[in-house]
Design a protein around this nucleic acid. Structure first.
Length: 555
RNA sequence: GGGUCCGUAGCCUAGCGGAGAAGGCGGCAGCCUUCGGAGCUGCAGAUCAGGGGUUCGAAUCCCCUCGGGCCCGCCA
């Protein structure tokens, strides 16, 4: 059994009471918090009973009575409004610890695939949305009781990486760039340009791809040697923003072990399979894909496999290793993901859930590595940490502490600013927003946490058997704290970390209001309030951890 | 041409069938007789892109139009 959480118990009781009065499966809703904790609208009953909604609500409210969790019931404007019993709720402060909000162990394994960027250059801020979403989802699912592993699918045999290899072997480019992967990206860019202009180069690159397909060990080794430093650079950037990936899976694996060709053969035997010259494709007309998009190519006419075909093999392989698959993909992959999904369905294989995110662009327009219109993640990180350092450098702290704090504030700000917006909204990157340390931002939340710590350091908590809260700001805060498990659940169900981000901000904001209105140390409610501060601290820390942001004790 | 997502105050975002549309940034005016000012309070600012429809009730659901992103490659 999951732990019992107050707002679940409260809702259960409300539903039970309504069912007893003849309203089973009632549609109840959560109104604005100033109004009530739960409400039952009676408008739809008006026709049935031939009475105005107000009257119906009044009749119901009169007959409900109190309960363990129901404190007050009243009828207003055609709603039956339920208020949670604060006396009962107050004692959750005793339950709130690190595990508050955690789901029970589910024995469900999940593979979250994220980032999977081509190892041909450093991550730019557009691609950074992927790992930040993926890592946060992985953290939230783990907290919810799932066994989660993250994977990065390394494209070590596509055109991109072949272009990079060709460039490094054939071009001479001078660069004073010290970091190897930054140097390499220049080779890639130049090679890609030359390839477009020159058919001979195009053939040479095709030849590299063909060799890979044949499982040519020497070429695959050469490729690995070139992409490895680039991938290491990416791993390092990710590490900086608190992201580490459990497993790296090379695409070539599925060509070498024959999976790709077995799958292509299987698909080629289906009635949807057709040929264009010697290239094999699936006709997806019957699956609701029309127009030019309906041809889903699996092979080139030279017999080599295409990315999407290999992706099918990868998904089947993943499906054998986990109960649930989640992919984080940019919206540009929507069609490809749908095609892969249809193929997997035809093969009767496990289907992935895909979380898509919209693009990050610059005020001048789309990011483009070619035209040099990019902002690299590393530069953002550096700038953000620098900005955080400026804020605290005059404080009386050791250098190590200053570094530690500015590191975590800077990174927190980056992660928060990206994760707080729903993935389906596009983002126009602006430095002033990305480096915002005020208001709806990580530092704001971290600051509230540090305040909690500071208060707790100055006083001693003594356990009480019964807690009570009376000030409106105390009540608002304890309610928000108690709702944490509900928000975690919602974030899991929607696969959306933005829900946790928004919650964390509200918690911090409610804590600040409490801090403003209620003196803790030296007050006659000191012990009750210390318990409330401690609970706030715990949940602020839990929320931040779910987003991969460090809960700082001082800043 | 086909598909898909988005359009909420100057800017960014929440709400996605129910009760004066909720926050942040920016602007203006305030709050240090000390529990951390990366904070707090107040003010100004919204035909919820536009038009139809469904409903007792629509920012929210359906249709159309307009604007923008992304895709429609034997690239990944």
């Amino acid at each position: 059994m999951d732990m019992k959480y107050p707002f679940d118990e409260f809702e259960r009781e409300v539903r039970q009471k309504l069912a007893e009065r003849g309203y089973p499966n009632a549609k109840i809703e959560e109104p604005k918090e100033e109004i009530a904790d739960l409400a039952f609208p009676c408008f739809h009953l008006s026709k049935i009973f031939k009475k105005p909604p107000d009257k119906i609500a009044e009749d119901i409210a009169k007959n409900i009575g109190h309960g363990k969790w129901i404190g007050k019931v009243e009828a207003i404007n055609g709603y039956v409004n339920f208020h949670i019993n604060i006396k009962e709720l107050a004692n959750v402060v005793k339950e709130v610890g690190k595990d508050f909000g955690k789901g029970k162990k589910k024995n469900i394994t999940v593979i979250v695939e994220h980032t999977s960027a081509n190892p041909t250059g450093p991550l730019h801020i557009g691609r950074a949305r992927n790992p930040i979403i993926g890592d946060s989802i992985a953290r939230i699912l783990k907290f919810g009781g799932y066994d989660v592993k993250t994977q990065y699918y390394v494209d070590d045999m596509g055109k991109q990486v072949a272009i990079l290899l060709w460039g490094i072997k054939n071009l001479k480019i001078r660069s004073d760039e010290k970091r190897l992967h930054y140097k390499y990206v220049k080779f890639y860019q130049e090679a890609a340009k030359l390839m477009e202009e020159d058919e001979k180069i195009r053939d040479e690159i095709s030849n590299i791809i063909k060799k890979c397909e044949e499982g040519d060990k020497k070429v695959l080794e050469e490729i690995k040697k070139v992409y490895k430093p680039v991938l290491n650079g990416i791993i390092e950037s990710l590490h900086q923003i608190n992201i580490s990936i459990d497993e790296f899976v090379e695409e070539s694996k599925f060509v070498i072990n024959g999976d790709v060709y077995n799958i292509i053969n299987k698909l080629a035997s289906l009635k949807y399979a057709k040929k264009d010259g010697r290239a094999i494709y699936l006709d997806l007309e019957d699956f609701g894909i029309h127009g030019r998009s309906k041809k889903f190519f699996l092979t080139r006419s030279d017999g080599t496999s295409l990315y999407a075909a290999r992706d099918i093999a990868y998904h089947i392989w993943k499906g054998e290793r986990a109960d649930m698959l989640i992919d984080i993909l940019g919206e540009d992959h929507k069609l490809e993901a749908e095609q892969v999904r249809i193929a997997l369905k035809l093969l009767n294989e496990k289907l992935p859930e895909v979380v898509f995110y919209s693009f990050v662009s610059l005020p001048e327009g789309r990011m483009s590595t070619r035209r040099g219109k990019v902002i690299y993640l590393d530069d953002l990180i550096e700038e953000s940490i620098e900005r955080a350092k400026k804020e605290i450098r005059n404080r009386n702290m050791g250098r190590e502490k200053i570094d530690y704090i500015s590191q975590n504030v800077g990174i927190g700000a980056i992660r928060y600013n990206i994760i707080k917006v729903n993935p389906d909204k596009s983002i126009v990157f602006k430095w002033e927003d990305a480096l915002n340390f005020e208001g709806e931002s990580a530092p704001f939340i971290q600051y509230a946490h540090a305040r909690c710590c500071s208060i707790l350091k100055k006083a001693e908590i003594k356990e009480k058997s019964n807690y009570s809260f009376n000030h409106p700001s105390e009540i608002k805060l304890i309610k928000t704290i108690a709702k944490f498990p509900n928000f975690v659940r919602k974030a899991i169900n929607n696969r959306n970390p933005a829900i946790v981000a928004e919650y964390a901000y509200k918690l911090a904001s409610d804590f600040n209001a409490f801090y403003r209105d209620c003196k803790v140390i030296g007050s006659k409610e000191e012990q009750d309030r210390l318990a409330l501060v401690n609970a706030s601290k715990q949940i602020l820390a839990s929320s931040l951890n779910l987003l991969g942001i460090e809960a700082l004790e001082e800043m």
